[in-house]
Nucleic acid binder design. Structure first.
Lengths: 251, 251
DNA sequence: TTAAATGTGTGACGAAACGTCACTGACGAT
DNA sequence: ATCGTCAGTGACGTTTCGTCACACATTTAA
């Protein structure tokens, strides 16, 4: 048996991460619909009781995975945020970092969507839910910052009937709707529809930004070719990973 | 060749509907996270074996409920479609019929969202999944028709880089993202954010339509007041139900 | 040094839910 | 009267969940 030590905060976090990672591997292998606590326990050098010390239940574990996933996504958002370019370009990059993330980490993305389901939130611990809210707020931060800059440098005028939070939400929910509805086709372009998620995301982003009169407008600039360059520059390793997956972005 | 059927088709459908309705009542009462097949069986004058003749499992039942819900939503869409007004106005009505539906039938809406989760689709029967695809295609029909008219009467010019299916999807996914992300606040405006779902839906619809240069543009017309009138005219009973729920639309 | 207290880990266990299958009985055909 | 068919049944085996009484280590007190 493992020699038990007394409370060590860092070790606890370490162990929690180990459990989460094992669960992610199981999701990748068997699909999220077949994840069970028993399997997780079997994968991990701890007993069921110990696992349940960290997570009050299966849903709580799912939400924990989702929260970790949001943290990873935040890093991509940050990279997009610090890109040298016009604000509209950078916001487009943010939306595409979300998409890249969904393609590269389907298990994590899937878990994020599932974690939004009421049956998951309904059974998770209050702390974990609170953490999710904080993380989402932080995630919005990147979007928020770009809008602020855009308004400051006059490339965007805030509509008088909207505030900053609404602007952020508009961008976020548009990308969320597009990607999640097409998530089944995110990995491989299935034949069911003619919709290609990266193209739709690109179009809808631009429609929304044009609707906001965010300069430069689509008709004035080749956003498409510029985005490709920016993606190569900001996400070189991620783009490479996509190529290795045989899933090059086409739009 | 065909064996003698002692049971007629209609009775089977009738019974299936009875099971579905019982399940919906259980969801309304206990929440979708607590729905179990055992409870459904207990609510229904049939045995478990019979219930499983209709649905291969719990997820299949959920998808069946979702499909029924889509049919109901179709009816609202149809009402919006035949409204006498400009095309942009009618599309706005379609989006709002979706919202009204989400508020009036939270259990059904919730089930629709859950039915999109991979763990549900992964365990449902192929036939039921196919039915879902057909219903969604049909649902898109109303949106499709309005776009066709808009293009025919020149109030909208199709962007050269998009086709009809993409246009439809853009509208749909925008509304989906907005409503589903705010669904937790759909019934009661929770204090967590300052976002009000009907207002965000209104704004984002108009931003998208403005981005498409869909006439008349927001700056040229009071879409807001006109929408209120149209809602009263097209959905009088639904608006009344909303008032009875103490959930008047404010935007 | 010993005993008690406290903290940590374990896995057997009961409850709950799932889905199946051997059986029943009704009804038509022979 | 007998047989075959099939809708319907619900008890049963299985899976999964989450708990809890116990075991063992470490610390503290005597």
């Amino acid at each position: 048996m493992t020699p038990p030590k007394l409370l060590d905060e860092a070790a606890l976090k370490e162990r929690e991460l180990q459990i989460i990672n094992s669960a992610v591997l199981l999701i990748q292998k068997n699909g999220i619909e077949n994840l069970t606590m028993d399997k997780v326990v079997a994968q991990v050098p701890f007993s069921k009781g110990t696992v349940y010390k960290h997570f009050i239940g299966k849903e709580d574990l799912l939400l924990a995975i989702s929260n970790l996933a949001i943290k990873l996504l935040s890093e991509l958002f940050s990279k997009a945020f610090i890109f040298q370019g016009c604000t509209r370009e950078r916001m487009l990059l943010v939306n595409f970092s979300y998409l890249i993330y969904a393609i590269l980490h389907p298990a994590l993305f899937q878990t994020c969507i599932c974690a939004k389901a009421p049956n998951v939130l309904g059974k998770s611990s209050a702390e974990r839910i609170q953490e999710q809210e904080q993380l989402e707020t932080k995630l919005m931060g990147a979007i928020f910052g770009i809008f602020e800059e855009a308004i400051a440098n006059k490339s965007l005028v805030m509509p008088e009937y909207m505030d900053m939070q609404q602007l952020c939400f508009a961008t976020w929910s548009m990308a969320y709707g597009t990607i999640s509805l097409l998530s089944s086709e995110v990995e491989q372009c299935s034949g069911r529809t003619n919709l290609v998620v990266e193209r739709e995301l690109f179009n809808q982003s631009n429609l929304l930004f044009d609707g906001l009169q965010w300069q430069p407008l689509t008709k004035d600039k080749m956003h498409c070719s510029e985005l490709k360059v920016a993606l190569e520059q900001v996400f070189p390793s991620e783009i490479q990973q996509l190529k290795e997956k045989g899933r090059e972005l086409k739009f």
